[in-house]
């Protein structure tokens, strides 16, 4: 089935809950109202015409005002695919019903989306951070999330950049003082047993 046919099927069943059907050759998707999210997913899984057994991926996209939650579904028996999309109510209220009851596969994907994007899946049995440590603050994939300055004494990239520049300037100042003399090769050159050995040739 094509995305248009699946969309028509869903429209017939769910009426105005299906907001948009896009059958684009790049990425065909069906936009669903958030309150029908789980019902549409269950229908797609159980209906003999669609039989979407495999939940390939759950993710979210940050569109500043709101988040789009995107699910990619595949049917191995029918060999067709569709993507479902829904909006979260707003940026501050980033919630979406969880699909773990429909496909257990959604469990880790939703945890990851919560961890990195900060979309709260209501009804998820165990919504914890997965990739980042438990005490991490913020959700790094949000567009307004900057680089952290420090984490448990480990300097962040922003802090390292500043320090590097400072070190570099000190070093340059030192070099200027060393008048005339040839500084010699870089300290690393010639400090390893293989240095100076032509590769591939036995000495």
């Amino acid at each position: 089935m094509t995305v248009t046919e699946i969309g028509a099927l869903l429209k017939e069943r769910f009426g105005e809950k299906i907001l948009e059907v896009v059958d684009d050759e790049r990425h065909g998707h069906v936009r669903v109202a958030a309150d029908a999210w789980v019902a549409v997913a269950t229908f797609l899984r159980d209906d003999p015409r669609t039989r979407m057994e495999m939940c390939h991926d759950v993710t979210a996209v940050d569109w500043i005002e709101h988040f789009d939650v995107v699910v990619h579904l595949y049917s191995l028996a029918k060999k067709h695919k569709v993507a479902l999309k829904t909006k979260t109510p707003s940026r501050d209220d980033a919630t979406c019903p969880s699909l773990t009851g429909v496909w257990p596969a959604a469990d880790w994907h939703e945890r990851e989306t919560w961890d990195l994007m900060g979309v709260r899946f209501t009804g998820h049995p165990d919504l914890r951070r997965i990739l980042l440590p438990e005490d991490w603050e913020g959700h790094p994939l949000r567009k307004d999330e900057g680089n952290p300055l420090e984490y448990h004494g480990i300097p962040g990239i922003a802090a390292i950049r500043g320090a590097e520049e400072r070190l570099r300037e000190e070093e340059l100042a030192k070099k200027k003082q060393r008048a005339g003399g040839h500084p010699g090769p870089h300290p690393a050159v010639g400090s390893h047993p293989t240095d100076g050995v032509t590769p591939g040739v036995k000495p």
Partner: peptide, 22 residues
């Protein structure tokens, strides 16, 4: 190029100053 070994003790050792010949 074909060199691959650049051991060092600090982060600064990892910076190669090519303008000095390198």
């Amino acid at each position: 190029g074909e060199r691959y070994s650049l051991p060092g003790h600090t982060r600064d050792d990892m910076v190669v100053h090519f303008h000095e010949g390198g």
